[in-house]
């Protein structure tokens, strides 16, 4: 891959076809863990890491399935690989970065059920991309998720104390903020480099 192709891939995955803001992948943590910029940052980092690793391992998993002619086991194998990876990341963070581990709390094991991770693995298979391209796409999509969640957390920190109708407090207000961010990003969708 040339540098230009890598740049195109990065631009597409992070901005033009952002996983959260234009494909609805990974909405649960996007809405759930975006109360504070600091936690959102940690979550984004962890998800990016898991997505890149998941792209790497599911690539080999897919090769194995093709070899033994059992592609129908794709979903089951992929989710097992991702669950194992998340467990590994959890143990690693607990040992090395306990502060981040504490602040992510319950949301760390929930990365397993983040559809962005399984989504990127399946998309890689659908696009028939090679090993290097798969890992890059996984990492860049993760960065896209990271950007989106930090942006939303920034907005939420500011509107937290604002006045709004009582029934709109909490999730509805967050979703409206997300809609405005997505609206800004949709101006860039459809750009083909």
């Amino acid at each position: 891959m040339s540098i230009f192709e890598i740049f195109v891939l990065a631009f597409t995955a992070i901005i033009a076809e952002n996983f959260v803001l234009s494909q609805f992948l990974g909405c649960c943590p996007f809405l759930g863990v975006s109360k504070k910029v600091e936690t959102a940052n940690g979550m984004g980092m962890a998800v990016t890491f898991v997505m890149a690793l998941a792209s790497l391992f599911t690539y080999f998993g897919q090769q194995l399935l093709v070899k033994i002619n059992a592609e129908y086991l794709q979903t089951i194998l992929f989710i097992l690989i991702i669950a194992a990876l998340v467990q590994f990341v959890e143990m690693f963070l607990q040992k090395m970065v306990p502060a981040l581990y504490e602040s992510l709390g319950i949301y760390l094991p929930l990365i397993t059920t983040n559809c962005a991770v399984l989504g990127v693995a399946i998309l890689n298979v659908q696009k028939e991309s090679g090993l290097f391209e798969s890992v890059l796409y996984g990492a860049f999509s993760g960065v896209g998720f990271w950007l989106a969640i930090v942006l939303l957390a920034g907005v939420r920190e500011r509107i937290d104390t604002n006045d709004c109708p009582a029934c709109y407090k909490g999730f509805p207000l967050t979703l409206t903020a997300a809609a405005l961010i997505a609206l800004a990003f949709s101006g860039l969708s459809g750009i083909k480099l």
Partner: peptide, 25 residues
């Protein structure tokens, strides 16, 4: 058209959840 794209999805769900919260309270 925007309502059937991504921003419309967030906006509509926000509205529906807000209504549900209103009826509940």
């Amino acid at each position: 058209l925007m309502m059937s794209l991504v921003p419309g999805g967030f906006l509509t769900l926000g509205f529906v959840l807000g209504m549900a919260q209103f009826l509940r309270t």
